[in-house]
């Protein structure tokens, strides 16, 4: 296939600028999702009254509605501006997945670990802080890593609410030059450049913490 290489090279600055937007949305959305997920999982773990039911409902709603629909609702329904809307929707979706990942991690820590910490004189807070949480996080690393990669890829739909991410750049280039293949190849390359380091980092982290502590 013959591609218009000069035009592809010329589009690099456009993609590069938009990549920052994609990364920025992904980073803030994922961080918020992590915070929401950890808080939610903790409330479930501590079996806080009144909160468990709404949190479970939130987890189901966030995981069982498409990001596209969440974006539409926030932007066109609730009139949230494009960029905050993208971050909020990603955090809303990711929060549910992250909560499940953290919850599984917390549940993987055996009850007897808590008892043996308490019997050494550690307070409940110290037990959670020094015994439960570190082990829960280590157990949750693969699931959290998978969520990070998943959420980063999910940002590809935010252009529907007029955010200039790398997908929007590709769409603009197509309507400008009718060079569909060129724009899409550039888009694929852009995602590979964004995602490969993240994948490698997740993989290395998994090997380092999980295998070091729990073995294979």
């Amino acid at each position: 296939m013959e591609l218009d290489y000069p035009n592809m090279i010329a589009s690099i600055p456009l993609f590069a600028r938009a990549a920052w937007t994609t990364l920025w949305i992904a980073a803030s959305g994922i961080l918020l999702a992590g915070a929401v997920g950890l808080a939610g999982a903790f409330c479930l773990y501590l079996e806080l009254p009144y909160l468990a039911r709404p949190i479970k409902a939130y987890i189901e709603i966030s995981r069982n509605t498409p990001l596209l629909v969440q974006l539409f609702l926030l932007h066109f329904g609730l009139k949230v501006d494009a960029l905050p809307c993208a971050v909020m929707a990603l955090a809303f979706l990711g929060g549910g997945y992250m909560a499940e990942a953290f919850r599984a991690g917390l549940e993987a820590v055996e009850r007897s670990q808590v008892e043996s910490a308490l019997s050494l004189g550690l307070s409940h807070y110290e037990t959670v802080r020094h015994v439960v949480l570190p082990q829960a996080l280590i157990s949750a690393v693969p699931a959290i890593g998978a969520n990070v990669i998943f959420l980063l890829k999910e940002t590809s739909v935010v252009s529907v609410v007029a955010v200039t991410d790398i997908v929007a750049v590709a769409k603009d280039l197509i309507s400008l030059y009718y060079e569909t293949a060129e724009a899409l190849v550039m888009l694929v390359i852009a995602y590979l450049i964004l995602l490969t380091p993240v994948c490698l980092a997740v993989w290395r982290l998994e090997r380092k913490v999980k295998y070091a502590v729990f073995g294979r």
Binding site: Q113, A117, S119, L120, L122, S123, V131, Q135
Partner: peptide, 20 residues
């Protein structure tokens, strides 16, 4: 209990060393 437990050592069947 925090103070009392620090004077009472306990060892369990399942060891329960902190894995991390």
């Amino acid at each position: 209990w925090r103070r009392v437990r620090s004077h009472i050592g306990m060892v369990f069947q399942s060891y329960d060393l902190f894995n991390h």
